[in-house]
């Protein structure tokens, strides 16, 4: 009973703040609403018996990626730049297409995603079980992801440097 209340409350929060993300004109408010949406999604993950991924979602998404977004928005001072209005035909087509997409997707989920009963027994998702799976079955993707993150760091550093600085350094 309590689970249902939590589910509906946080599902409503997630959907409402997702709508604020796409509809508000100030990008800082959009970013902060996305943080709230991620936090409520993290609660959903706890309801799905995955507490490790729930905390990981808060640490990685809400705590690091969105801080990066906020830094970029604040340092580039994007809120004073008024976004030119999207052309009405594009807005109309965008809204109708995504509404049709939403309705079609929900209809097909309700019609075809019918499940038989779950396997019995508890679902072991402790961090030790995830750690064992990461280091035994998935060790190769795990190591590749670390190299990918290194490539991302180097790429981000190179891309965000100004070209004028480089030409000043050379004598």
């Amino acid at each position: 009973m309590f689970e249902y209340v939590v589910f509906f409350f946080f599902a409503a929060v997630a959907v409402i703040f997702a709508l604020v993300v796409i509809l508000h004109r100030n990008p800082v408010v959009s970013a902060l609403s996305l943080v709230v949406s991620f936090f409520s999604l993290s609660v959903m993950y706890v309801l799905l018996d995955a507490p490790f991924l729930a905390v990981l979602q808060v640490i990685v998404y809400a705590g690091a990626i969105m801080v990066l977004f906020l830094f970029v928005i604040m340092l580039l001072n994007l809120q004073h730049m008024s976004e030119p209005a999207t052309r009405p035909i594009q807005q109309f087509l965008g809204y109708t297409t995504s509404a049709a997409f939403a309705i079609g997707l929900v209809y097909y989920v309700i019609k075809y995603a019918v499940f038989t009963a779950m396997p019995s027994g508890p679902f072991h998702t402790e961090s030790s079980a995830i750690g064992v799976a990461l280091f035994e079955s998935y060790v190769f993707p795990f190591e590749m992801v670390s190299i990918l993150l290194l490539a991302a760091i180097v790429g981000a550093l190179l891309l965000s440097g100004r070209t004028t600085v480089r030409s000043e350094v050379q004598p």
Binding site: V35, P51, I59, G63, V67
Partner: peptide, 22 residues
């Protein structure tokens, strides 16, 4: 006394950045 214990602390500590930034 949750299973993931101390990670909750780190998750909430990473949310404290927002108070300062905002």
């Amino acid at each position: 006394n949750v299973n993931v214990g101390v990670l909750v602390v780190f998750a909430l500590a990473s949310l404290s950045v927002y108070g300062v930034t905002v």
